[in-house]
Design a protein around this nucleic acid. Structure first.
Length: 158
DNA sequence: GCCAACGTTGGC
DNA sequence: GCCAACGTTGGC
């Protein structure tokens, strides 16, 4: 029995928003299209069923963490890499030797108050967050203390 | 829309 | 294996 971990997943809401996740069948969706090796390693090797996820909206006027999702399926080959029609097609990835991985996530709940990037930056307790030093990494680990702090900032009851 | 930061590619 | 060129990300 492994202890559950915390993550931050980034998404551009114009592509896929937290509300899109909510309205998916069973509020569950594949987290596909990740094409960065470090993020891939997390998805393939570390993200586990039951892990909790901060859903972050990037590349918009007011970037913010908007809610919580949960991992419902651990890493497995991202088949969109083998679909020539797909935007994220990668001919180097095969069924025998997949390069890219995805997980499945489920909508849990929105924050009563979204936590803006500016607020994260202004909180000294969060100065070690990966988001602030490696902003481009799309799958990032979150420490338990950071998780609790951010939920508090988002108005989530303990 | 700009541009800095950063990841990837490919010539050597 | 180095590193310049290039493409992408994402805050502003």
């Amino acid at each position: 029995m492994s202890q559950r971990s915390y993550w931050l997943f980034k998404s551009e809401p114009t592509n896929f928003s937290f509300d899109d996740l909510r309205t998916c069948p069973n509020s569950t969706e594949h987290w596909d299209g990740v094409r960065n090796y470090q993020a891939r390693n997390y998805l393939r090797d570390e993200v586990q069923v039951g892990d909790q996820v901060l859903f972050y909206h990037s590349n918009i006027a007011v970037p913010a963490i908007v809610g919580i999702a949960e991992v419902v399926r651990a890493g497995y080959p991202d088949w969109t890499a083998r679909d020539p029609e797909n935007k994220h097609f990668d001919p180097a990835s095969t069924a025998e030797k997949p390069i890219w991985y995805m997980v499945d996530v489920r909508f849990v709940n929105p924050f009563p108050r979204p936590v803006k990037l500016a607020e994260l930056k202004n909180n000294p307790a969060l100065s070690g967050m990966v988001l602030l030093s490696r902003s481009r990494l799309s799958i990032q680990p979150v420490r338990e203390e950071e998780w609790r702090q951010i939920l508090r900032m988002g108005g989530v009851e303990e």
